[in-house]
């Protein structure tokens, strides 16, 4: 596809997203759309380490949890304004990611995936048991919304919060785009292709891997912070391994190593389980089956499928 066509597609998607609250009549779908946009932010981060660098990290939701709890706790105990704590959440998450990333990134392939998985479990168990700080399973309620400036900008209004999250999602997608287009992004993709070669060229691959890992954690931390202030309630349950797997799925199903992939994937991961609700207890089985089939028959995700179709149509002309 030409560059113009791609730009038009992105512009069209943005227009649809801006118009979405006006098109949706059911409040619940607006709620899901906000969650999907938060997942979009997390998935863009996940894509940096998983899609572009080729390292499957299974600690995305754990980092979301760190972002969510740090913004909440800083507000509660230090009395900082919500805007400031949201901004501080990604750097806080980055500190944890540095500690986690250093030992994890010494491992490759499956080792790395499983070590990060272990870290997600550690985060989860600590959130669950450090009740003095996190209030454990009961969770923390009454997390404040960001303060609005005008009457119209009341963040208690779902629609306002939607546009707020949309703005952040566009911004983070832009950052991801800038990273991917930069020299750093080129090196990350080179690491995915052949890490030994990158090392042989005299590039310290571990620095770049650590950068991608920490950047992905910051995206997740930001997503977690937005989640906490949106729901006004957090407990450890939503920051477990299952949710980390959702982030991985969003990237894979959408199309890993593409900018559009996580966008599509995030919406699928949030909306598909809802649409399968009619199936009740079979939901898990159908969801799993769809995943298996999608991976076998559509290994490059929806974006890959669209590219193949596009190429076929262009070839026929």
């Amino acid at each position: 596809m030409t560059r113009i066509a791609v730009s038009l597609l992105y512009a069209g998607a943005l227009v649809v997203l801006i118009a979405l609250p006006q098109l949706i009549s059911v409040k619940y779908y607006l709620h899901l759309s906000i969650l999907a946009l938060i997942w979009l932010i997390v998935s863009q981060g996940q894509n940096l380490i998983q899609g572009y660098t080729g390292y499957v990290s299974i600690v995305g939701a754990g980092f979301m949890g760190i972002g969510a709890y740090s913004t909440t706790l800083m507000g509660m105990h230090l009395g900082l304004p919500v805007w400031l704590t949201i901004l501080l959440a990604p750097p806080m998450t980055a500190v944890f990611a540095l500690i986690v990333g250093y030992p994890s990134l010494r491992m490759k392939g499956h080792y790395f995936a499983i070590v990060t998985l272990a870290f997600n479990l550690v985060i989860f168990i600590v959130l669950l048991n450090f009740t003095e700080l996190t209030q454990g399973e009961a969770g923390i309620t009454g997390i404040p919304k960001p303060a609005g400036w005008l009457e119209a900008l009341n963040f208690r209004d779902r629609e306002v919060y939607y546009y707020f999250v949309l703005a952040v999602a566009v911004l983070t997608t832009g950052i991801a785009w800038a990273i991917v287009r930069s020299r750093v992004g080129q090196i990350l993709m080179a690491i995915r292709q052949n890490e030994d070669l990158v090392g042989a060229l005299g590039v310290a691959a571990w620095k770049y891997k650590l950068f991608a890992f920490v950047a992905s954690a910051m995206f997740a931390g930001l997503g977690g912070a937005l989640y906490a202030h949106y729901q006004s309630f957090i407990n450890p349950e939503v920051f477990g391994v299952a949710q980390s797997l959702d982030a991985i799925l969003a990237v894979i199903v959408g199309g890993s190593g593409t900018l559009a992939g996580p966008m599509i994937g995030a919406f699928i991961v949030i909306f598909l389980p809802e649409y399968l609700r009619f199936a009740d207890s079979f939901r898990l089985i159908i969801y799993g089956l769809l995943l298996v089939l999608a991976t076998i028959f559509m290994p490059r995700g929806i974006v890959g499928l669209a590219q193949d179709l596009g190429a076929r149509i262009a070839g026929r002309r």
Partner: peptide, 19 residues
Amino acid sequence: ASHINAFIVALGLTMMVEG
């Protein structure tokens, strides 16, 4: 396929068997 895809299949299977 790449080991990431095999891993995703494994995750899908986990959901199915859990279901």
